[in-house]
Write a protein that binds this DNA or RNA. Structure first.
Length: 134
DNA sequence: AGGATGACAGTGT
DNA sequence: AACACTGCCATCC
């Protein structure tokens, strides 16, 4: 860990940045791997794709993703557990509807329970389908 | 070439 | 909890 002139900490990149087609496909695969009824954050997707700190790139990858891939794009939320589209837009309601169809419950504007980034729950995402009442 | 703008995130105040 | 700031990276003026 290092610090810049303003005192903020940061991790140096251990790998050269690449934004070629392979990188995009890697991200798309990570998104496709999110199980139905579960959600992940942009940063989480980036990490699982082997691209830590590249959350913004995930947003770009989603934007340019070919429709034929049929990616579960609606399962990707921002780090605060919220939908990243402005409320009231068509995409917002579409995403919210798709999530609801998979049993993802909302509380106010955010998904229930912890944040999608919580490392302890990445594997057994707790806010999953309510159908599996354990 | 340089600044603004995003389907973002982390840290500090 | 909300805001400001910065890192981040591709696009679009």
């Amino acid at each position: 860990m290092s610090r810049d002139s303003a005192g903020r900490s940061f991790r140096a990149r251990s790998q050269p940045v690449s934004t070629d087609q392979d990188t995009l496909e890697q991200i798309w695969r990570a998104i496709a791997a999110i199980p139905s009824g579960q959600v992940d954050s942009y940063g989480g997707v980036a990490s699982r794709a082997g691209l830590p700190r590249r959350a913004r790139l995930v947003g770009y990858a989603l934007k340019v993703a070919p429709r034929e891939l049929n990616l579960p794009w609606h399962r990707v939320l921002n780090a605060s557990g919220r939908i990243s589209f402005p409320e009231g837009t068509r995409l917002y309601s579409l995403q919210r509807r798709k999530l609801a169809a998979e049993g993802v419950r909302f509380e106010g504007g955010r998904v229930r329970c912890k944040g999608p980034d919580d490392p302890s729950s990445l594997d057994r995402v707790l806010w999953g389908p309510p159908a599996s009442s354990s």
